[in-house]
Amino acid sequence: MPPILPGKHLWKEESMTNKDIFKRGLIKENAVFVQLLGMCPVLGVTSTAINGLGMGLATTFVLIMSSIVVSLVKSFIPDKVRIPAFIVIIASFVTVVDLVMAGFFPGLHEQLGLFIPLIVVNCLVLGRAEAFGSKNTPFKAVLDGLGMGLGFTLALVLLGSMREILGSLSLFGLKFVEADGILIFVLAPGAFIALGFLIAIINVLKKRFA
């Protein structure tokens, strides 16, 4: 089976301890900063830190749940139809998140509503199901989903904070200076600029401490 993700050769699943499986998603193989996966929600929802947090947690939930189910049913699914099967599983969990959020967190749902259905096509989720969940035990799949999901959330909160601080002079909705921020950081082009700078900073830090 050809690898569907760049850098897949880096992952030696057999030799990794559970701690490594969890840890690598946080920084070393961070879905956003290193693998550059799931860019649509990353750039779309991160105009504020709280939106980034909500989207990150929703994606983490879908990642964990779909990884568990995929790893549980992996031997039941014939190879040729595995992708449609994974997509059905992922889409089901996304719909669950969508409905539950609309019912119990209407405020957050209003902000993120448009992007929730797009978790289905977030290649990070399908990528983990395909590259990890379908080859490992449910327990390892949970660790992997949790690590990757938290790494994704961390990236979204960082990017959201940076854009909110520069664009609206506030953080998590709390305004610290009564003035207008740099408008472009609230808009889509600012998302690209902020992400570029964050990736550069992370690369420098990684080199220094590696």
Binding site: K74, S75, F76, I77, P78, D79, K80, V81, P84, A85, V88
Partner: peptide, 13 residues
């Protein structure tokens, strides 16, 4: 792993 026969694919999906 299940074989990718027509029946298996239809059944599992």
């Amino acid at each position: 792993k299940k074989e990718s026969t027509f029946f298996n694919m239809v059944f599992s999906l």
